[in-house]
């Protein structure tokens, strides 16, 4: 098994008295796609922002270890972290409509990132921008490079943002719900694009999403988060075909099926997401609640398929 590219262990992020991420551990191998799933407020976005050192809320406390290519990112100085951001780890965000500075051309913004990390001429940076736009499927990139963000549609902007993220050939791409703000056809195109780019560039991808469909399309490994903790982790096939945590069951049940009888209402998970407390964060909403749930279960299991649940082994298979 190759060395992990990114290894996060016991990451904790607290805002005042509120714990957003509570002891999260995971790793990403080179070239692998990790899908991070969970509902809003499960801590998936904030944990990735924490990895990149992008949390700037005053009073936020971040602890744990984030080792990327042998260096602990949380211990790096600002300037050292800047050299990694955008060059070795790139991030794309949910809403492409607001992710680009409105007053500069697309090409200028891509060139800016290139020139922030590499000593190249303006001309060369612009040429690179044209090449990248072409690569992400923007028609007539020689002209489009001089267009402003407001002249692009949502899907085109997300392509431009992806082109920008790939401009320095990052080893790791963190995509925070890159398809959520787009319509379904565009979603499929963007996922296609990400898959193709991964093959071409060999970047590892962390795909944050609440859409099980997206995960099933693109992920190699899946990390299910709830209440700031990892509740299940495993390969895509394992998590989709033999899910072991009641929360994952709920998530998978709430996806409409193509085959089988048509249900009048999709099943839902009762209650609303709560914050990480003393016990298992999912206990309040869980139909399988045990007395042991007052204490948080550790993430454990065999052969790379882990879950955090006190249920006896034989009851974890359905």
């Amino acid at each position: 098994m190759p060395e992990p590219l990114l290894e996060v262990s016991d990451l904790r992020i607290r805002f005042g008295g509120f714990t957003a991420v509570d002891g999260l551990s995971f790793s990403v191998r080179p070239g692998e796609v990790l899908g991070v799933v969970g509902e809003s407020g499960s801590g998936k976005s904030v944990s990735m922002l924490g990895v990149l050192g992008l949390i700037r809320t005053p009073g936020a406390k971040i602890s744990g270890k984030v080792v990327f290519r042998g260096r602990d990112l949380l211990a790096l100085k600002n300037a050292e972290m800047r050299a990694i951001r955008g060059r070795e780890i790139a991030m794309i965000f949910q809403d492409p409509m607001t992710a680009l500075t409105p007053v500069y051309t697309i090409g200028w913004q891509i060139a800016e990132q290139v020139r922030a990390h590499e000593k190249v001429s303006k001309r060369a940076a612009r040429d690179r921008a044209i090449k990248l736009l072409d690569e992400v499927g923007i028609p007539a990139p020689e002209q489009r490079v001089d267009a402003y963000p407001h002249e692009f549609s949502g899907g085109m902007r997300q392509r431009a943002v992806i082109a920008m993220a790939l401009s320095c050939n990052p080893a790791l791409l963190i995509a925070d719900e890159p398809t959520t703000a787009l319509d379904v056809t565009t979603q499929a195109q963007i996922l296609d694009l990400l898959r193709r780019l991964r093959a071409d560039h060999g970047s590892a991808v962390v795909m944050i999403t609440h859409d099980m469909g997206v995960v099933s399309e693109i992920a190699d490994e899946v990390l299910v988060m709830y209440g700031g903790r990892a509740v299940e982790r495993g390969s895509r096939t394992e998590v989709f075909h033999s899910p072991r945590h009641p929360y994952t069951w709920g998530l998978l049940d709430s996806v409409p099926r193509v085959s089988g009888p048509r249900v009048r209402r999709l099943p839902t998970i009762p209650g609303t997401p709560g914050a990480a407390g003393q016990g298992c964060p999912f206990a309040d909403r869980c139909t399988h609640r045990l007395a042991a749930c007052a204490e948080a279960p550790p993430l454990s299991g065999t052969a790379g398929h882990l879950d955090a649940c006190w249920l006896p082994e034989e009851e974890k298979t359905r």
């Binding site: 992008l54 800047r82 951001r85 955008g86 991030m91 965000f93 607001t98 500075t101 990132q113 922030a116």
Partner: peptide, 29 residues
């Protein structure tokens, strides 16, 4: 607080550049 400033940070730009070229430039309008 805009998204594009977060993008600029994720690009690895310096705080000074983010402040002047991105945030201030748009605030001056």
């Amino acid at each position: 607080n805009e998204d594009y400033v977060r993008t600029a940070r994720a690009k690895g730009l310096s705080e000074r550049r983010i402040l002047i070229r991105h945030a201030l430039r748009c605030s001056l309008i």
